[in-house]
Amino acid sequence: MIALIGLVAGVVLGFVLEPTVPLWLQPYLPIAIVAALDAMFGGVRARLEGIFDEKVFVVSFVSNTIIAALIVFLGDQLGVGSQLSTGVVVVLGIRIFSNAAAIRRKLFGA
């Protein structure tokens, strides 16, 4: 519930403040967001499976976003940034789908 409120509050704040993404963050923010979405879906799934742990959620959320951004950063340094960010998005996308499928199974039993 608090997470949902936080999400809504964040969206509202974003619309009210209209922030500009700083230049150095621009390549990494989209990947970090996808990683965070993955962590969020994972959290919902864990909650529905009854194995949710706030500490695990917070740590995985933070570490996932940082690692995703780091991978893209490393890729940029190596000159394969765009390919690597595509790879990261694909992997995270697969995880989001499998988490969504698990959530769906828990909710609808199908």
Binding site: I2, A3, L29, V58
Partner: peptide, 26 residues
């Protein structure tokens, strides 16, 4: 449920929502 963990999760989700909107806007 108001535990510290829940609050931290809520805060992270707040950051996430904020980042999503910022990214979409930019």
């Amino acid at each position: 449920r108001t535990t510290w963990g829940q609050l931290a999760g809520g805060l992270l989700c707040l950051v996430l929502g904020f980042a999503v909107v910022a990214q979409v806007q930019s």
